[in-house]
Design a protein around this nucleic acid. Sequence first.
DNA 1: CGCCTTTTGTCGGGCATCTGACAGACAGGT
DNA 2: ACCTGTCTGTCAGATGCCCGACAAAAGGCG
Lengths: 224, 224
Amino acid sequence: MPPHSHGPASILALLEHEGTHPLRGVFQMIAFERGQLLAQPDDADYIFVIRTGCLRAFLLAFDRELSLAYLRRGDMFSTHTRLQMQAGEPTQLFIAKRIAVEQVSTSHPALQHALIHGLAKVLGQTMTLLEDLAFHHARGRIARYIVRSAAHAGIGLQRGQVVPLALGMEEMAALLGTTRQTVSTEFNTMIREGAFARERRGSLRLGDVTLLKNWARGETLRGG
Amino acid sequence: MPPHSHGPASILALLEHEGTHPLRGVFQMIAFERGQLLAQPDDADYIFVIRTGCLRAFLLAFDRELSLAYLRRGDMFSTHTRLQMQAGEPTQLFIAKRIAVEQVSTSHPALQHALIHGLAKVLGQTMTLLEDLAFHHARGRIARYIVRSAAHAGIGLQRGQVVPLALGMEEMAALLGTTRQTVSTEFNTMIREGAFARERRGSLRLGDVTLLKNWARGETLRGG
DNA sequence: CGCCTTTTGTCGGGCATCTGACAGACAGGT
DNA sequence: ACCTGTCTGTCAGATGCCCGACAAAAGGCG
């Protein structure tokens, strides 16, 4: 569930405003190059809001990685010991220690709501991933990803519609918890079966949408 | 990741106190029988705190289910469209509409913190599950579960220690995202290799702890 | 256009794990 | 003790997926 809709704009507005809102005092702005990692400076918890660019949150184990979400402008999140962050492009964000935010936010309930909202959102995305991994085969996950991409782009599931795909095979694999090869193979098999066709790189044209829906629904469950 | 430590006791204290704390007004107490489902009455979000008993949060897809967490006294959570709740034993809980809580909590920052804390905790557990599913084989997940069980019971990882297991094979399988048969087979293979021995039902005696640690660390990663 | 790098497609072998089926072990009640 | 239901152990067959390797294709740049 990649690019998701923007979080509470109010926070960003507060932080970007030229005034001296008390909240602005605890946040620092930092910039990242493409590919740069957001290192955990100490073992304190941090909270941040994306201002521009794109940050990929992922789990890392040895040489494998699983992408959890792509955070974009307005998205708010907190550093988490087990999560790595990497800029997918030049990125700016506001960051502050969680404790500091909590102290200030005592008098700013709106921020609290925003935080809860943000956490709940990431929790939801994580749950989607969990569903995918636990219940769906590689083909189902790909189908679900395509359906989500279409929905996110505001495109109906109808033959002929063009759906943009933000990710390459490798990145898709990392997001879906599988391998480049499996994604590639399944993808092309789905094309041969007529579910959709390739449209240059980075987009596809929908074909037999019923097929896609059935795969996405997971008629055939994982491990079966 | 089964029973986790108790949440903010303050909330429960507030709710259980005989006085007329404003917070108490928005919460209702309900009781459940063993096996009963916590149905989503309408499409509003609810927040609840467990008072007694045990609630299992799980994902459901067709005839398969994946247990996410076992919530116990003091644990706080919110209903989530995709999550089912089931009482594992007679259970009482305080429940309220999220909106109502937010309105009241505007003047009670402590509650906000507790909520954020609770959400973050569940997010953490979800992440653990995700790690398991994405990176570890069945054996690794079982080993990790045993290690967690020991830690939760405050038992050191040393030969001879007795670790209680709260779950049967079937429930363990649901929590670890695998099948009863696989858990049973792996479990007994691990016993034969000397990692631990069975101690009546529901507990085991640790043997070669190094083996256990290695499996838990995941020397051998999933899909490899 | 030709070169080089990155991305994508495909194959064959191997393996973890799922399914379905059945037998043995345990626990509770009468 | 017995029966009875639930839990547990194990097997054989099937399969989805991973891995390593290599070829084909696409894009950037002089």
